[in-house]
Design a protein around this nucleic acid. Structure first.
Lengths: 208, 208
DNA sequence: TTGCTCCTCACGTCACGTGAGGTGGC
DNA sequence: TTGCTCCTCACGTCACGTGAGGTGGC
């Protein structure tokens, strides 16, 4: 019963499941002999926990309180959406974002005109990271304008994801909206697994 | 001096640097007052450690012995290339890979004809993961044949990376070969940061 | 009966984080 | 002198992993 969950999350171990129960995150039913018996709901809960951990980098403490609130019927804010760990809400002005990333002013302009960054009055932490990546790429001779095709490919990937969401997104209630986003993230994750393998195997072939 | 390294690796903290020194992974010089003084070589070493940790999921124990061997002039095998943690070397036959991934036989055929998986007599652990991802995508209505464009985009991305490597890959000695691959992985990582942000911000806009 | 998996409980471990209390440089 | 960063040392913590010793089902 236990190991049938692993296909989805390769990092799941029996020990981890026991740990999660000890921490009151899950409470599966027991057989007479004391064996854990996972209902479909329990499995769904574990799936939720693991994806919160992996995709949103949430510590178990936060996940616990979120689940506890949900169990109490409070329908709490989905964590990771806004104002969570990464998204500290700090804003950077144009000069600030450039300084933080160690970039040249022209790089930001190029990035904006290549649609890699969306121009605005103030930028978030993510833009700093993107700019840093662009600085590094520049050191390898890759300029933002070389990323136009890359940018277009991302756009097509988003189109693929969206088309898969159409059947889900018909409904308008709030919980299903959260589900749609969750699903979109999952699809993006699966595509990432596939791309990662294609790229890794290609890079592996450089040194045969 | 310390915080100037963080632009590259956002997860780096003073505490982590102290820890790394305590573990004998780095030994920066000290000023008269006891302050750590990082030479460019030290910085390069830290960069190496962090990328081994992040990109190859190596525990510090392995990194330590690798660096120790390298310090001793042994020029040890670069870890993570072959036979490391993920790549356990286990091979799967066609029926095995299908069963492990919980897929239908036709899915593997489709994946191969869409060039998402390379057909062979036996498959590695990665193929199992790719197939699992394809199974999940199928549940969202995305079939391997929908991934032809995706696959082509990956190919163009690889072309972009390769073109940036040309100046480096002229040389034929072994150490520079390892450097080329390391560099390729870095570039792929930076592109991933950029794509991740584009996708996340687009998915964020679904629920405004 | 023989394996096999599951169980609990205690302890270990890996990779840091967190103060307390103190010094050094401008 | 006032902040500021840096220091060490001890302890805490988070997320598990690892046996030891034992039971349950086919």
């Amino acid at each position: 019963v236990l190991a049938r969950l692993t296909p989805e999350f390769s990092e799941l171990t029996p020990s981890k499941l026991r740990f999660l129960e000890e921490q009151k995150l899950i409470c599966p039913a027991r057989t007479d002999a004391g064996y854990r018996k996972f209902s479909p709901d329990d499995v769904e809960r574990v799936r939720c926990i693991l994806s919160l951990q992996r995709d949103h980098y949430l510590p178990l403490k936060v996940i616990r309180s979120y689940l506890a609130d949900r169990d109490a019927g409070k329908n709490p804010a989905f964590p990771g959406g806004r104002g969570s760990i990464l998204n500290t809400g700090r804003r950077f002005s144009r000069p600030e974002v450039i300084r933080e990333a160690g970039a040249m002013p022209a790089l930001l302009n190029d990035a904006i005109s290549a649609s890699v960054v969306v121009g605005a009055d103030s930028y978030g932490e993510e833009t700093v990271k993107v700019l840093r990546a662009l600085v590094e790429l520049q050191r390898s001779g890759i300029e933002p304008r070389h990323l136009r095709g890359f940018r277009a490919a991302v756009e097509r990937e988003l189109g693929l994801i969206e088309s898969a969401l159409v059947p889900l997104s018909r409904r308008k209630d709030l919980t299903s909206k959260a589900r749609v986003i969750e699903r979109a993230r999952e699809i993006a994750g699966h595509l990432e697994v596939i791309r990662g393998n294609l790229i890794r195997s290609a890079l592996g072939r450089i040194d045969p």
